[in-house]
């Protein structure tokens, strides 16, 4: 039986140490990754009351704030979503006030009759179509219905 070359033994041990340290590092990194990794959750859409049909002015879209209690990790908070309601033919139109560019809140500007974004200068017409600036898409239209009993406009959000 030949004695093993001590150099082989040293390099085998060196590989063992490298592998061990690597394993510990990978385990710790994996743990952090597991905790920090995003979980995809499809937000559940529900019908929510936005405003009474009698509250809508004829000459401009009206904003309505839809409040909702939502869980935010350990924290329960009130989410507030702003929608713009408007008459459209015999029915109603609801536009989400979030700019399609980078998510700032658009405002209705009565002077120019446009939705204007205060961040990067995006502008939309009354139907939510892009007129100017960087937004890539129109304002998001939300499904709308009217509750016949209460005459309230409901928005699916």
């Amino acid at each position: 039986m030949s004695t093993p070359d001590p150099r082989d033994r040293r390099s085998a041990l060196a590989r063992l140490v490298t592998a061990g340290v690597g394993l510990i590092g990978a385990g710790l990194a994996g743990l952090v990754g597991l905790v920090a990794a995003p979980r995809s959750r499809a937000p559940e859409r529900r019908w929510r009351t936005a405003a009474s049909i009698f509250d809508l002015p004829a000459d401009r879209p009206a904003s309505a704030v839809i409040s909702d209690r939502v869980a935010d990790g350990w924290y329960e908070t009130r989410s507030q979503t702003v929608v713009y309601l408007d008459k459209e033919g015999d029915g109603y139109r609801a536009l989400l006030s979030t700019c399609s560019h980078l998510g700032c809140k658009v405002n209705w500007d009565d002077g120019t009759k446009q939705f204007r974004c205060p961040c990067h200068g995006g502008a939309y017409d009354r139907e939510g179509r892009v007129i100017a600036g960087p937004p890539p898409r129109p304002l998001e239209r939300l499904p709308v219905r009217v509750n016949p009993q209460t005459s309230e406009i409901e928005v699916q959000l």
Binding site: A36, P38, S40, V70, D72, G73, W74
Partner: peptide
């Protein structure tokens, strides 16, 4: 984006992150 945001909206989990 969801790694940066942490939770379903910009909120408590974003702030701690």
């Amino acid at each position: 984006a969801s790694l940066l945001q942490g939770g379903g909206q910009v909120g408590a989990l974003t702030l701690t992150r």
